[in-house]
Every structure is written in structure tokens, then in C-alpha cells.
Design a protein around this nucleic acid. Structure first.
Lengths: 334, 334
DNA sequence: CGCTTTCATGTAAACGTTTACATTCCCGTA
DNA sequence: TACGGGAATGTAAACGTTTACATGAAAGCG
């Protein structure tokens, strides 16, 4: 059985209050007493129970990042940024997956009460109003990639529409007029806004506007591959593809190669995100770059501030801009 | 302030014990009473404090995965497998980073007492004996990619040596005799064993054995690129490269391209891991495949069993085999 | 020498929840 | 009608730690 503070107190012949003060440097303890207590604690491998401690102090020095998924380069980069910034603020970062469904988000939220000081939630697939009804009232929350009205918590979103618009405009500037889009997951905020940006750019640039050019995908490489099969079957065939994220662009490039179609000379392609591997592909991928890792870092920064203000601060909504990154897959050179 | 069980009890005109029984379905409660309590709990947005609950029940239904880093496709895949298996067992999975240093591992371990029921630790860079001295005695732990003597906890390792051996043997079967290796991080168990496998295959296959062919890397794409600069400067120039992981192989391929060297006709290359993007590269990457996601899943399975047995079971050491996956980058066709 | 202040430590309540045990009431059976 | 058993609920201790307040002793100052 794991030793408790009582065992330390007994062996050190002091009260548990003295042990607590000695180990946490809170309040006066005679130096000789403190040294004796610390030595005994180390000898019997005592570590405080953080549940008991947080019950008592009403603090955990921990925050949690709840993501739709925990894998893939995009989420990886979000976690990287969040982890680094949490470390700088001496907060312990935990990461948890909501598996992209509302029930799991609620379950994750319910399991966090008393365990963390604040929560970052990325949840582009969940309706923000139904999400808000699940949010604990006093626990600071920062929402990522959700559409909320701003009274209840801070949020950071990506200007998806503008990023998609830039990328598609660039394809148009290459002379493309028949551009397909591989869409993201249905009911996903990012996907919806990227579609809007695509439509706006195509409309303004005199490109073909057609429902058949808007091909289903779900942000995975496999769905990018499958979309290409459909795109190649369209008549007349598109000359460029905008994939709503880089993973689908990667899958699309692979499928084009398998169909003997040369990128970018026979089909131009562009993505969205700029995940790290995008620059290593051949051809390297033109894309809308989001500072993904900075998204995670800003989320943590915002949350840590909210925790310090006991969630009483004026909530704010930030928007991250996307920047066009021109590489080879649109026809430009690296 | 967040409502507690006391507020629910007061509004429902029952004791806190009745509320606890009603909400957790433990013990008899009249149906009308239970319905009234649940309605009130929902109205005032009551969620139990999990710290208090775990203090009382001595259980958390949570496990944690402590990784050297939380980003990159490899760790991503480990997390994917772990998360799926944890969900199947109705355990909540948390993920935390040790930032690949002993101090942070100890800090992570100390912050988990009373918060989780068990811990998976992947720590290839830390000497296992010093790690073991930090392990809590009664908390079940599963170690990944560490070298331990097996009395204290379960472990799952990769047969790195054998995997590297297979890959390098394959390069030798293509006629290569001057094969460079891009090594992993110093003092890393995986890196060390892959180097041993490389040496054994080269030695048995009559290849060149030379310290200059063993080039430093640290598992990142950038270090793969930098290693290529050194390798191209060797005289006579190697005809093949074995990168100790796929990320460095990706970086190496990119650098070879930039130097105008065609893979595989002018330089063959192979990696280790088989991260998901490896199949989308051009040329696609020959590699030693580890069922990375299965590593995570097995770790969780082993830990959940250890928790159930209250850590009193006979500890076991499992070894995951690597399988050669032949693609284009060695000169074979897909 | 006496009084005041400060140091060092102990006591006990509190944090929020669970649950063992006790109590009361109701129902069924002889 | 009486007794026994079971349902329903309340009481209070426990989980492990923190910390406000109390107490005693020692040191310093007038």
C-alpha cells in the first residue's frame, strides 16, 4: 500500500501538518525538522496524492486539451504548441480525445471536474450551442474551431474562408477555370468555411460553378484518393483540385500518380493546413498555411490567463489568418 | 461557484448519501426520489468532483500514456492504438509528455498519484535502472521501449535489431556493399539496437564496415537531411542508406532530390517504423514495419489487466517483431 | 525580572464524495 | 393482531491533504 502523509508523520514524530508544511514549504518549520521529514519521505517513497491535495487546495496546476482525434500530423502540431506553452507556464498538460462525438465530449468534460483547472476544446464538428450547454459554468474553457457567440468563453478560430479563397485564387491565376474541391467532413465548421472560400474565389474568378465539382471527403488520405476517382470521371475533366486539408491532398496526389496523371502539368493541386510533411512531398504541396502549433500555444496562453482571472475576464474571440504557401503542386517552382 | 452534492441534497430534501446513491445507482433508492434527484442535478448543472470521488473510492477509471513527445506520426500512431483500446475497456486515456528527460518523467509520475489507476511510459532515452527507482511501488506501470529486468513491471519492446537486420539484408540482396546508416538519438535504446542490427547485417553480408558510414541523426527529418550532406561527402560514396526511422528517411530523400540524386537508381534508401505517410512518398519507402498502433493497444491491454490484478500478477516482457515492407526506394517496384 | 513578540508545532475542521451501519416504516404472513 | 423481513433513508466516518487557529516555549527589550 502506498505510504501516506500519516506514515511520514509517525516516522518523523511530528504532526501531519508539520509534514505538509515541510514538504511544500508553506509556513515555518525548523530546519532540522524539515530535513528529517524530507529524508524520511524519500526513504519510504512518499508522493502526495494529488486528488486529496486538489480537494484541499482547490487547484491542480493542470489543464487538458480535448481534441476530436489524437493522431495525424495536424493534431500533432496543435499538441506540440500547446505542450510547449503549458510547460513555459508550469502547467501540466493532459491530452484527451473526444472521438469527434458530443457524448464523448460531455463524458470528457464530466470526468475533468476537480481534475484540471481549465479545458481547451477543439470541436469543429459539434454545433456550438449544444456544446455550450454542456460546458461547466465556472471552469475556464477555450474553444478552438467552433462557432460561438462569445459570452461564455474564449475562442480561437481559423479564417478558413479567406485561406481557401487565397489558394483557389492562386489556382485561377494559373489559368485554371475548372477547379474541383475535395470537401471536409459534413457539419464541420472548418470544412464549411473552406467550401465558402472556394465558392467565392471560383465565382469571382469566372470558374465553373457546379455541384459535381464539390466532391465529398472526410479529411483523411484515403478519402482524398477516393475523391480523385470521382474527379477523373467528370466530363469535362477538371484541371485543378483544391483539397480541404493536406492529408487529402497527399491522398489525391498518390491516386493521380496511380492513374498516370502528372502533377502539376496534367492536374494542379493545392491543400490547406501546411502540415510538416507537405514540404517533403514531390511535387511539394502548395497550401494555405496555418500556424498550427501557434494555435495550440495561443489556446493554452488564453486558458492560463482565464484560470488566473478565475474566468471573470472579458471573453475574447481570436481569428488566426492563413497564408498562401506556393510550392510545386500548382505549377510554380519551389 | 460550482454546485456540490450538498446543494443537490438540499434542493431534493434528502441526504447526500441518497443523492450519491441515486446518481451512481449504488444501493436502493425509491424511483420517484431518484427521478427527482436526477432532475435537480441536471437543473443546477451538477457534476461530481472526480478528485473527491477517487479519494473516496480509491479508483479513477483513468490511465495515462507518458511519451517522450506528443507529436510526429510515430507517436500519433501509438496514441491511436492506445486510445482505441482504452475506449474498449471503458478507461479514460490521458496523454502526457515527458519531453524526453528524466526530471519531467519523475514530475509526470509524481503528478499522477491519485489521478490515474496506471501508467504506460515510453522512454527509450532513459536508463531503465534510474527510471525504475522513480516508479511508484503500488501503481501498475507498463514500460515501452525500455530495457528492464522484468521484476517490477510489464514491458513491451520492439525487436529493433532484427528489424534493422532485415532491412539492411534486403539492401545487400540488391548488391549494395557500401551502406551508410543515419543513427537515432544517442543513448536511445531503439537507436542502439537498430545500429547493432545494421552492423550485424553489414558484417555478415560482406559490406563495408567503417565508423564514417555511421552518421549522426536524431530521428527528425532535418537531421536526415543533414546526414545526407555528410554521406554524399564520403569517398567512395555509399550506394545505399539505412535511416533509423522513417522521418529521417523522408528528410534524406528530400535532400538527395535537392542534390539531384535519383532514388533508388543512384542511391537506395530504407527506413524503419512504417509511419502512415511512408506509402504516399515517391518513391514509396522500403521500411521495417512495426505495428505501431498495436504497440499502443497492447500497452493499454497489459496495463488494464495489471490494474485489475492490483499489480500482483507475474510481470511479463513482450517483444514486437518488425516486418520488412518492400517498396520502391530500395529499387524494387511497389 | 516581567512582559511582549515571535517561532515552532499540534489540533481539528474543511475540501466533496462514498458507503457501512443504524433507524424507521411498511408490508406480508401466520 | 403481532412479528419478522425488507425497503428506504439518514448519520457519520473515512479517504489524504491543507491550513486557520491555538498553545507553549524561547528570546529580546525595557
Amino acid at each position: 500500500m502506498k505510504p501516506t502523509i500519516k506514515e511520514v508523520a509517525k516516522k518523523a514524530a511530528v504532526s501531519i501538518a508539520t509534514v505538509s508544511r515541510a514538504l511544500s514549504n508553506s509556513g515555518l518549520v525548523a530546519e532540522a525538522t524539515r530535513d528529517r521529514i524530507r529524508q524520511i519521505a524519500e526513504e519510504i517513497h512518499y508522493t502526495p496524492n494529488v486528488s486529496a491535495r486538489s480537494l484541499s487546495t482547490n487547484r491542480t496546476d493542470t489543464i487538458v486539451l480535448v481534441l476530436p482525434d489524437l493522431f495525424g500530423e495536424f493534431f500533432s502540431e496543435v499538441i506540440r504548441g500547446a505542450d510547449q506553452r503549458a510547460q513555459q507556464h508550469n502547467y501540466h498538460l493532459l491530452v484527451s480525445s473526444s472521438h469527434n462525438n458530443k457524448g464523448d465530449i460531455e463524458s470528457a468534460l464530466h470526468s475533468m471536474r476537480g481534475r484540471v483547472d481549465g479545458i481547451v476544446i477543439m470541436s469543429p464538428n459539434i454545433d456550438a450551442h449544444t456544446l455550450e450547454s454542456s460546458l461547466p459554468k465556472s471552469l475556464p474553457v477555450v474553444l478552438l474551431n467552433c462557432s460561438v457567440d462569445g459570452e461564455r468563453c474564449d475562442s480561437i478560430n481559423i479564417d478558413d474562408s479567406q485561406g481557401a479563397y487565397q489558394v483557389v485564387r492562386h489556382l485561377i491565376s494559373h489559368g485554371h477555370r475548372r477547379i474541383a474541391i475535395i470537401k471536409g467532413t459534413p457539419n464541420n465548421l472548418d470544412a464549411e468555411e473552406r467550401l465558402l472560400g472556394y465558392r467565392k474565389a471560383v465565382s469571382e474568378g469566372g470558374g465553373d460553378i457546379s455541384e459535381e465539382l464539390e466532391v465529398d471527403g472526410n479529411f483523411t488520405e484515403l478519402s482524398g484518393q477516393e475523391a480523385v476517382t470521382k474527379i477523373l470521371g467528370l466530363n469535362p475533366r477538371p484541371t485543378a483540385i483544391f483539397a480541404s486539408n493536406d492529408s487529402m491532398a497527399i491522398g489525391a496526389i498518390s491516386a493521380l500518380r496511380k492513374n498516370g496523371i502528372q502533377v502539376p502539368t496534367e492536374m494542379a493541386i493545392a491543400g490547406f493546413d501546411d502540415i510538416p510533411v507537405a514540404e517533403y512531398l514531390r511535387p511539394s504541396l502548395t497550401t494555405a498555411r496555418i500556424a498550427i502549433s501557434e494555435l495550440g500555444a495561443m489556446a493554452v496562453e488564453t486558458l492560463v490567463n482565464a484560470v488566473k482571472e478565475r474566468n471573470a475576464h472579458t471573453k475574447k474571440q481570436l481569428v488566426l489568418q492563413a497564408n498562401l504557401v506556393v510550392r510545386e503542386s500548382c505549377g510554380c517552382s519551389d
